[in-house]
Design a protein around this nucleic acid. Structure first.
Lengths: 148, 148
DNA sequence: GTAACTGCAAAAAATTTGCACACTG
DNA sequence: CAGTGTGCAAATTTTTTGCAGTTAC
């Protein structure tokens, strides 16, 4: 039984999965759904909890396997927090970076990439060939600024 | 017995520790030394191994405690790899970002910050107050490009 | 149908903690 | 010497794995 949670994010995920010959299982779509309705990045445990609320028993291992796969597929992005923890956020493949609120772990996208106009020539002079970059802004979101 | 490994990095660490009223123990200085002489970022296990080679028995817990503290003090930086792992590199407090070779995990600094000229106005319009950022470039270093 | 997935429970890896002893300042 | 820091071993947490049974396509 494969539920359909209807929404852009979910059809996007279905699409990516189909293209790769992977199955759109209930569990996988539920993970997308949980991340999609969340304003903030979620830990593995939170995702697991959310999926269990939706589907009943679900193995934690499935969540791990799903997230790893989604990260490879560009469906989710893993975020790192200053305290060493990490979380996941839905990320529709496009080149998007994230601002993370260090108080509530809320996630906000920004599409202008600070590295876009960066002159890689200086670093490539050392022979280094840049292939990708990871950028994440930290700060406080509007709500948390007010609450402080 | 507190050994002295003489070098800029080590005296820098001593200095930071003294300022905070923390002790410059042999183990802490050894961690600095190991990271300093390494061309690449090191995992906790590698650092532990290196320190044990220098000093004999050393508890893994000490390494964890030291690295956490060093990260707070800005003496080391934790780096994240695409495969989900992470490592540590010496980082002398200044605003420096790192390029990481995905093959050998080598670390190269670059001081020009791509975010320097970034217009935060656009994101701050949403009420977000940017406090810090994490930037890391991925790619291949000269050696690994040749080896490929 | 059948290959890809899942749940479960167990195993392995990573990190933290408590406490008696040791070392720095 | 006083209090910070360490080693050790145990506890906890996090992540991975194997496999019999399901499910999407």
């Amino acid at each position: 039984m494969m539920k359909d949670f209807e929404c852009t994010q979910e059809s996007y995920a279905r699409e990516v999965l189909r293209e790769k010959g992977l199955k759109s299982t209930t569990q996988r779509l539920a993970v997308v759904h949980i991340l999609h309705i969340s304003e903030k990045s979620l830990s593995i445990g939170e995702i697991h909890g959310g999926v269990k609320d939706m589907l009943g028993n679900t193995g934690l291992a499935t969540i791990y396997r799903t997230l790893e796969m989604f990260e490879d597929l560009g469906i989710v992005k893993r975020l790192h927090f200053p305290d060493g923890g990490h979380g996941y956020a839905f990320s529709q493949g496009e080149h998007v970076h994230h601002m993370v609120c260090v108080d509530c772990r809320g996630v906000f996208d920004f599409s202008e990439c600070p590295a876009e106009n960066f002159d890689y020539a200086s670093v490539e002079k050392q022979g280094f060939r840049v292939k990708d970059h990871f950028i994440q802004l930290f700060g406080q979101c509007g709500k948390c600024v007010e609450a402080a």
